[in-house]
Design a protein around this nucleic acid. Sequence first.
DNA 1: TCGTGATGTCATGAG
DNA 2: CGCTCATGACATCAC
Length: 282
Amino acid sequence: GLLSQLNFQDPEAGRSSDAENGKVQNTSLQWLKCHNLSSTSCPFYQELDQSKCLWKGAEVSECEGASQSGVSSPNSGDDGDSETETEGDSESYTRERARQVRLPFSVEWIVDLNRNDFQQLLKQQVFTQEQLEFVHDMRRRSKNRLAAQRCRKRKLECINDLQCEINKLKTEREKLMMERSHLSQLRLKTCHSVSALCQKVCNEVNLKPDQLQVLAQYTSSDCPLSSLFPHVDSFVSQPDSLLQPQASLSACFGHLDMYTAAEEAPSSSTTDTVKGDGQRPL
DNA sequence: TCGTGATGTCATGAG
DNA sequence: CGCTCATGACATCAC
């Protein structure tokens, strides 16, 4: 029987008398019923009906006088303004203020009213200016308290999502780095193969200077093949060959095929190297 | 005693 | 124009 919370009878009394409980219960219930307020809009309704109008965790009030030191200050017995000394304990302070302004309803109940019900309450019930200010303040702070909780929850979720995104991007980066490394090795391997092939071709076929020039066109500075033609300017002037090595090599061998088709000649040497001025050294 | 996370509150802007 | 909500900033408390 902590119905005293409904109208904030003297907290030092611990609890109200049954007579007071009944009076407060009737006040709220009558008001609810008189104004056709939905019980769903008032979570307090059921508790009212069961004579159990409690604060959240209202067990505190059982020993409120002893444990809530913020309220149970030497001044708590009178109606003096204890604002400065009770701000640290919001719930106790609220309760104390409600008692001071003699609010006929539970703060929680008023706070939980939806907008329409609250407006209706204001129209039907006469409140003093002090009670009105208190009630509006309580509603504002209560709603803001919940809003802050939602806001913080969202912020944490946002931080968590961003952290997941970071992890995902890090994983993606690692994957791309590995792929790049793999492709780099593959390109190097391919270049070596082409280089060896070119050396073989150069050794086996008597390439003319202009044929060598054509071959050189499709080499790049970072490919071993370029070592075959170190003096040819076009080595570094073929950026496309870097971007499209397959196309370049294909074109390269296309040209070679064109040149070598007519004068195909086997050679026994595969170890000789091409060097010097771009002309065939052999 | 200091750092830190949780929470309440206020001020303010947007809808 | 008043109300509600979201959010940054600050204060307080507990650990």
